[in-house]
Amino acid sequence: MTDYNFAYLDEQTKRMIRRAILKALAIPGYQVPFASREMPMPYGWGTGGVQVTAATLTPGDRLKVIDQGADDTTNAVSIRKFFERTAQVATTTRTAEASVIQTRHRIPETPLTAEQVLVYQVPIPEPLRFLEPSEVETRKMHELSDYGLMHVKLYEDIARHGHIATAYAYPVLVADRYVMDPSPIPKFDNPKLSNCPAIQLFGAGREQRIYALPPHTKVVSLDFEDHPFEPSKADAACALCGDDASYLDEVITDDAGTRMFVCSDTDHCSARRDAGHCGEDAA
């Protein structure tokens, strides 16, 4: 299949997206509108992330794609195959070996480096959306740093649940300026957003927005003085590799409700097992 332009998108489109990415990097946390294209996949499957990845890839890159931490789910596999076919780039499942990582809803456990670009798939880029339905008003609020409403959401959480129950897509303040939705990553991952050596790009295809965190940007999770932000995870260790510090998925194993916890980051888990670590259920 040589009929595709490199990385599927035509050069003019890539140029347009790269301009949006550069602008986004210049104004950390600001949502840059872009002319999102139709992609050969449905909205919600990462059309924004795929376009950002397509505009970012060079022939020498090595791509990794994860979906909720896993390299082997349908979404991850199909996007990886898409770029293998349309860009002929090398792919990998190893975080450390990848130069571009497209992710849905996780940040890899392995610390990222200055040589890497992390591309997030974003369903709803506007953190104020659920409280303020008007786009005109939310833009005005961003313009004026008028962010009291964001804390109203957290207040409602505490009033209703006794603690900040928002567990994913937890809002952050970027470089003391813009409030940003970090995409639906678990709040466990929020601390990794801050001061990260890698470039972090966020693409929302349906909503036609791109935003970014340049390397080493200060990112603060919003909270109250008396209810400080706490990254949380299941209080258990991975049943396969025994790690008690990584983010865990709960897996129901039978109809009786028996469950086990395993690392959500499959690469992290297999690397640990390869290195000889062992969880209690490891076969």
């Binding site: 008028d146 009291g148 409403l149 804390h151 109203v152 207040y155 409602e156 505490i158 009033a159 909270d223 109250f224 003085e225 008396d226 209810h227």
Partner: peptide, 17 residues
């Protein structure tokens, strides 16, 4: 409570209690 608290939060109150 959130309706009343909004103005406080908008002017920088950050202590839930």
């Amino acid at each position: 409570g959130g309706n009343v608290g909004e103005r406080l939060m908008a002017v920088g109150a950050r202590h839930y209690g």
